[in-house]
């Protein structure tokens, strides 16, 4: 795989340096049969250093997962060697079944078949609240 010239695929750009492996795992990229390149510590004017992931196939990316991990990432869609689309991410309004509610008194700890749903409460502070119990799910590893 020539990492500089993807014919058809996806380039995830502007990943915070050091977080590419987390994204690799969260998107399940290790399951892909196609080649995937992780490029770490690339010099960047805006970010100092950044990571880049290049995927040599046009797969469906879960933009909600990506937006939750890092809304600063740019998703470039490549067709015939040129960028045909640049997607900028936003924090998803709802997260479904990404993590579990941290409140031990929450109904989700008892009722087995409930979806874990988190609703974006404060985009600036990246705070989600459990749909059921309203408990705050804070921080980069939450919910």
């Amino acid at each position: 795989m020539n990492i500089d010239s993807i014919r058809r695929g996806i380039v995830l750009d502007h990943i915070q340096a050091g977080r590419s492996m987390e994204i690799y795992r969260a998107l399940g990229l290790e399951e892909l049969p196609c080649s995937v390149a992780i490029i770490r510590n690339v010099k960047s004017n805006a970010m100092g250093k950044k990571d880049i992931i290049k995927i040599d196939d046009d797969i469906d990316i879960d933009l909600d997962v990506l937006g939750y991990i890092d809304p600063g990432i740019t998703v470039n869609i490549i067709v015939d060697g040129v960028i045909t689309e640049k997607k900028h991410l936003a924090l998803p309004r709802r997260l479904v079944n990404m993590g579990r509610c941290r409140n031990p008194r929450c109904i989700t700890t008892q009722e087995a078949n409930l979806d874990q749903v988190f609703v974006l409460a404060d985009p600036a502070r990246k705070i989600y609240r459990c749909l059921y119990c309203d408990a705050e799910q804070r921080g980069t590893d939450a919910p």
Partner: peptide, 10 residues
């Protein structure tokens, strides 16, 4: 009435 928070939403 339920001891768990959010039970009425479920």
């Amino acid at each position: 009435r339920h001891p768990k928070e959010g039970a009425p939403i479920a």
